[in-house]
């Protein structure tokens, strides 16, 4: 088995113990960082995604694959050619205040991590202050908020208003999602992006990275 195939298998299996050695071996063998990411990592993650849709692998495997991919990217970062960046973007994600529904949020976080985003997951019941403080500290590109409760959905608008009032709105792209959220609602409160599912969130987040905050709007529903 070639080394890139071995890396693919290690990511697919979430093999945190061996992934770094395998990447080192590939680098020693003169394989470029870009190829290691694309032909080792991404291929494995695409397989994981497809098998997840067919109920052949499940959320824990997906998460472990995402964690391994993060290790791979950190390792090859110094070897990337100037101009190409390791992560596709930095995302702060969490459930709005009062909301404990974390399944959809975790799936979105995992899908984004699996597709090369650096994701900081703040968990459930996240206050507006905490979203802003973390985004500032981490210099995030995207703040992604999940709400399944309409009573927590209010805090999405609060976040956008707070950022605007504090003159920080144009620093971050704001993505929203969850059961009661729609394209119309996302637009109405002045978010930058919305997607209906976790799969589609990857396309949305990539779209967001191509635009400046508040300058456009990305909605991916099918």
């Amino acid at each position: 088995m070639g080394i890139l195939k071995k890396i693919e298998e290690a990511i697919y299996d979430g093999d945190e113990d061996n992934i770094l050695d395998l990447v080192q071996e590939a680098l020693d063998g003169g394989i470029s960082a870009e190829r290691i990411i694309a032909e080792g990592g991404v291929v494995a993650l695409d397989r994981l995604g497809e098998d997840f849709n067919n109920l052949e692998v499940f959320l824990p495997e997906l998460m472990m694959g995402g964690d391994c991919m993060k290790m791979l990217i950190e390792k090859v970062k110094p070897f990337l050619e100037a101009g190409s960046s390791a992560f596709s973007g930095k995302v702060i994600i969490g459930c709005a205040k009062g909301d404990l529904h974390d399944i959809g949020k975790s799936l979105v976080a995992t899908e984004l991590a699996v597709h090369g985003f650096e994701v900081i997951d703040l968990g459930v019941d996240v206050s507006t202050n905490r979203f802003i403080e973390t985004a500032e500290k981490e210099n995030a590109d995207i703040i992604a908020v999940s709400a399944l409760l309409t009573t927590s959905q209010y805090y999405m608008e609060e976040l956008i208003n707070r950022l605007t009032d504090e003159g920080k709105r144009d620093k971050y792209r704001i993505a929203v999602g969850g059961g009661p959220i729609s394209t119309e609602y996302a637009r109405k409160i002045g978010a930058d992006g919305y997607s209906r599912t976790a799969n589609l969130a990857v396309t949305m987040a990539k779209g967001l990275m191509k635009m400046e905050p508040t300058k456009d709007f990305v909605s991916v529903v099918a």
């Binding site: 709005a96 009062g98 909301d99 409760l149 309409t150 009573t151 927590s152 959905q153």
Partner: peptide, 16 residues
């Protein structure tokens, strides 16, 4: 409900 007598029913607050 997600409003109470016209006010927003904000989760985790006295509105609840």
């Amino acid at each position: 409900l997600d409003t109470v007598m016209g006010s927003p029913l904000l989760a985790d607050t006295p509105y609840e």
